[in-house]
Design a protein around this nucleic acid. Structure first.
Lengths: 137, 137
DNA sequence: GTAAGTACTTTCCTTTGGATAGCATTGGTG
DNA sequence: CACCAATGCTATCCAAAGGAAAGTACTTAC
């Protein structure tokens, strides 16, 4: 059913992220991976970015992980890599139309979290204060 | 500015996920962590779930990671844990109103990916076929 | 006495991630 | 001509995170 070799027409029209063998699961993993959502959000807000620009925008990412994340997302068809054969190298990354589709949701999520920081901090402090599990009965 | 000890009123009204010191960044990490989004999506579609039900629904998760993910999300104020002191133990997890807010976006993302599996598979196959980087010039 | 059932926790080992250095290429500098 | 800068990676090595399996705690049922 989720056999990666079967013809497209035999694949289910809809995936199932809860199934670990479904391709949608691995795409979800790439998109919501440690760095995926930030790469996607950065590209969505800037349009085009070079490798070093992405590295500069995403505080804390290592070059290894940036390269790896970009490769995964490119393979999933969410972004394109365009290299101009000049010296020093000039490589551009941008979202594909497919990538723009996910990006919309990713950005919604990121923006929601950013605009609810105070609520989140308050919740964490309350939790740390009473460190009690809610016990009913 | 993002000092975890400063009073709420001094925290910026909006976080910045691109800054590795901002609390919104760690919440994003929990929500989009390897298992966070699936836990949230499962709770959103079911309302209430017990530990073992979550484990059953989320194919591939280990008990250790489920426990850890639940603890993080609970601390962030996104879900509640309610244990009834009976034998055998009975523990329920459900989203808080805050959690329901993120869950909306998480579910949008998951649903988008699930409904675009075919496009994603097609993209992967094309990529694997030409394994060529887009080169302009 | 012992097995079952639930929600974890612990242990041990594999996999992943991070920091740093290196590579390839060529124009500019001394 | 030697040398460095600039860019986009890759390689290496070590620390951290994650997975599998077994253990814990407690009481009812057999």
């Amino acid at each position: 059913m989720f056999d990666p070799a079967s013809p497209l027409s035999e694949l289910p029209a809809r995936g199932d992220c809860f199934n670990r063998r479904c391709i949608s699961r691995s795409v979800l993993a790439h998109v919501t991976g440690r760095w995926g959502s930030l790469v996607i959000a950065a590209l969505r807000s800037s349009g085009v970015l070079r490798f070093s620009e992405l590295r500069g925008r995403i505080d804390g990412i290592s070059e290894k992980m940036l390269a790896q994340t970009l490769r995964e997302l490119q393979r999933d068809g969410l972004l394109t890599r365009t290299s101009r054969p000049v010296v020093p190298p000039h490589v551009e990354y941008r979202l594909t139309p497919l990538g723009a589709g996910v990006a919309e949701h990713v950005e919604g999520l990121v923006r929601w979290i950013e605009s609810h920081v105070r609520d989140l901090v308050r919740a964490q402090r309350e939790h740390d204060a009473d460190t009690g599990d809610g016990v009913a009965g």
